[in-house]
Design a protein around this nucleic acid. Structure first.
Lengths: 192, 192
DNA sequence: CGCGTATGAATGAACG
DNA sequence: CGTTCATTCATACGCG
């Protein structure tokens, strides 16, 4: 995943931040200024927890006055702040009422989705090699599909058998019943 | 994605969760190996976005060769990858443009596209409903604060430049309503 | 100077 | 599906 590629900029590219002025602007990750933090904190304290897109953009635009910032930084900031508050809070609450040992939680599995996921587990965790993922034309209502290839990709040095034909794995897009009956296409990852 | 695909990897993903529990490896959640990620990414790149049940099972069966994996992991992976790609693209935001005070240097910028991509904004939340700066109700966790956030919060002494007028990349995408060119909403942090 | 902590960033899992 | 939650990874920073 190119874009998903993440984590960190490789050091080599470190210079690219603000233009490489050597003033210590590191490009690795956003480092909020105290003013930025102050504003964000104040917004948070004012009750804002999950800003919308517009809010995020406005906020980051404003905060850019104090220094380099991107909207994703604002997004992450709120996500993290909220999460950590909850996290800390949770520790406290655990000790608060640590009773319930017999929690008869009526986990209402109220939707197929969950059931579906539930069923889905365990099905294929055994080391079976050999696959033919057939993939015919998946109807794409998605916008661009650069390449609708994936015609013959094989994932491994095929050598094995596999038998997953249980009748109970009818899930996934159960809502759509979008079943592709094994499309006669086996994908082959040649590069592997 | 873990460790960098740039080679130096950091965390050698836990090897064995499935085999035996002896190693005390915490198997809280699936941690894909780089090979698994590579395959999944390749499939995605090949155009696969919403694999069918059968495809999911086949894929996970194959990927199990590289390590523990369940079908639902594959399912979620595609869901997330698809969603995040869209999300990323959807949030083309403004902050990428100038850095007011710091608009110097335009030397050197030859980053690998990787780095370049990083510069782009991404992520944030998108409004499902018409939004106001005011968020109505949200999760169960936060429902204390006076839910009236800043109707009019401005983050600075309003002398800062509002250079939203860059016709170039300024197409903040807002899928729903809520655009009067300038939402009558300008944040004002009175307390600052 | 080497750690422990705070926090930015990423992503698996799940909800509505 | 888009959004949100939870957990983890990576790193900047401060302490001793």
């Amino acid at each position: 995943m190119d874009e998903g590629m993440s984590g960190f900029c490789i050091k080599a590219s470190a210079a690219g931040c603000g233009g490489g002025n050597g003033t210590g602007t590191k490009c690795g990750r956003w480092n909020p200024t105290t003013e930025q933090v102050k504003v964000l904190t104040e917004l948070f304290r004012s009750g804002l927890r999950t800003p919308s897109t517009d809010q995020i953009q406005k906020i980051s635009a404003q905060l850019s006055f104090y220094g380099k910032i991107e909207s994703k930084n604002v997004f992450y900031w709120f996500q993290n702040h909220k999460a950590r508050e909850r996290q800390k809070r949770r520790k406290v609450s655990i000790s608060v009422h640590d009773d319930h040992h017999n929690h008869n939680h009526d986990l209402h599995h109220h939707h197929q989705h969950k059931d579906f996921i539930r069923q889905m587990d365990k099905i294929s965790s055994s080391p079976k090699h050999f696959l033919e993922v057939n993939h015919h034309h998946h109807q794409v209502y998605d916008h661009h599909q650069p390449e609708r290839v994936m015609e013959t990709l094989q994932l491994f040095p095929l050598n094995s058998f596999e038998e997953y034909s249980e009748p109970e794995k009818l899930m996934i897009r159960s809502m759509h019943a979008n079943h592709d009956h094994h499309p006669p296409l086996d994908l082959r990852l040649s590069f592997l």
